[in-house]
Every structure is written in structure tokens, then in C-alpha cells.
């Protein structure tokens, strides 16, 4: 390929399939991160503030997707949430929600893979909230859910948002678990990452792969910068008090 034409195709507008992959990636990552947030906050709170048996086990389970090969996570999702899997069947019969080979499955894979990062960021920010303020709220009559809603959560908010952004960024980059669980179907489950993989598999696909790579870098970088700014705000506020 000539250098000139390569550069031109790099600047060419996105083709409809590329747009589809970009928009699907954003949808999958946004919904995956947002849907896992309540679980992430609950588990981060348990790990930060409560002591209970098997706490180490829970902590380990949460972090497992971070250290396991993503293909293993994807395979386990297929076993559990595939149409024949116990959870997959339960979701399909109770609310008609199907995961396997659908974009919803890509969102689930994204949520699971981003979960350790989300829980970690939120847990740290909850641990940074002065527990004595929570005690003060208790002496003023607040029941535990109100203490969390009015004291802990607002003070940990920058960390909660940072956790959400990190999970989103991780979801944009998700590849292994997604392709194992929901394959690489254009228009349904093909995200930026799997579209780049497809592009590199066909002759002359390098320019398309490069364009999508730049998009992936831009989204991930913007998310990380946002998370970093929020983290800096948390530590600054901690020093103010």
C-alpha cells in the first residue's frame, strides 16, 4: 500500500459498519458500567466498612476477572448465562432477557470485566471517608441506610464516579471475554475491539483497524483523564479537612 493512500484512508470518514461498532461499544460500555454500579457500591461498602466471615473470599472473587485470562471469564459466562446455563435460563424465563450472542451479553461481559476496577476505586473512596462522621450521624438518630445516603455516599462521590469511569474505560477495551461469550457479530455484538480484530484478519484492513484504534485510544484516554481529575479532587478534599 502506498503511503499517501494509506494516510487518506486514515482520514476518511467512518464507514457505516465502523460507526455501528463505535456506537455499539459506547452503548455496551455505558450500560455495562451503569448496571453494575449498584452492585459495585454495595460490595465496596461491605468490603470497606463491615467485617463478616468469608470477606477475603468475596474480595478474591471480585478481583478474579482482573487476573484470570479473559477467555476463561467469557467461557464461564457462556456456561452460566448462555441459553442453556442456569442463570441464562432464569433471566430468559423471568424477564425475556437473553445474553448469549446479543449485545446484552457484551454488556454483561463488559460489566464483569470492569467490576474489579470499579469496586476498588469505590472501596478506597469509602475507606477515606472519616468513620467518625458516620458515628456522629448515628448519634443524631440516622438509621444505617440514611447514614450511607447522606454522609458516606456524598463524601465518596468523586471515587464512585471515578470507579464508574474506570469500568467504562475497561469495557471499551474488552475483547477476550466478549468474543468468547457473544462472538463477533457485526451490528449485534461487534464492538470496536472485535472490529479491529476482524479488520486485521482481512487483506487491506489495516487502515480501518488504525482508524478504530485511534478512536479506542481517544475514548480510553478521555476516560482515564476524567478519572484522574476526580481522584485528584478526592485527595485535595481529604487534605482540606
Amino acid at each position: 500500500m502506498e503511503q499517501g493512500s494509506g494516510f487518506n484512508t486514515l482520514l476518511a470518514p467512518f464507514s457505516p459498519p465502523e460507526w455501528t461498532a463505535i456506537l455499539l461499544s459506547l452503548k455496551v460500555a455505558t450500560i455495562g458500567a451503569a448496571a453494575s454500579l449498584p452492585f459495585g457500591v454495595a460490595i465496596a461498602y461491605l468490603l470497606a466498612r463491615r467485617s463478616f466471615p468469608c470477606k477475603t473470599l468475596l474480595n478474591g472473587l471480585v478481583h478474579l476477572p482482573l487476573v484470570m485470562p479473559p477467555v476463561v471469564t467469557g467461557w464461564l459466562l457462556l456456561l452460566g448465562f448462555g441459553r442453556q446455563g442456569p442463570f441464562g435460563r432464569a433471566f430468559e424465563s423471568c424477564c425475556g432477557l437473553v445474553f448469549s450472542f446479543r449485545w446484552t451479553g457484551a454488556a454483561l461481559a463488559a460489566a464483569v470485566m470492569g467490576f474489579p476496577l470499579m469496586v476498588r476505586a469505590i472501596r478506597l473512596s469509602i475507606e477515606a471517608v472519616d468513620a467518625r462522621l458516620e458515628q456522629a450521624a448515628q448519634t443524631l438518630g440516622a438509621p444505617a441506610p440514611m447514614v450511607f445516603a447522606t454522609i458516606t455516599a456524598p463524601l465518596a462521590l468523586p471515587g464512585i464516579v471515578a470507579g464508574l469511569i474506570l469500568a467504562f474505560a475497561r469495557a471499551i477495551g474488552e475483547f477476550g471475554a466478549t468474543i468468547t461469550f457473544v462472538a463477533n457479530i457485526p451490528g449485534e455484538t461487534q464492538t470496536i475491539a472485535t472490529a479491529i480484530y476482524s479488520a486485521t484478519q482481512i487483506p487491506g484492513g489495516e487502515a480501518g483497524a488504525a482508524r478504530l484504534t485511534i478512536v479506542a485510544i481517544l475514548i480510553a484516554f478521555a476516560a482515564l483523564v476524567a478519572a484522574e481529575i476526580l481522584a485528584a479532587r478526592v485527595s485535595r478534599e481529604a487534605m482540606d479537612q
Binding site: A136, Q138, T139, L140, G141, A142, P143
Partner: peptide, 8 residues
């Protein structure tokens, strides 16, 4: 603590 109604 929340049921004791002490102002601390």
C-alpha cells in the same frame, strides 16, 4: 446509638 437520643 440512633435510638438513644443523646446530643453528642
Amino acid at each position: 446509638p440512633r435510638r438513644r437520643r443523646v446530643g453528642y
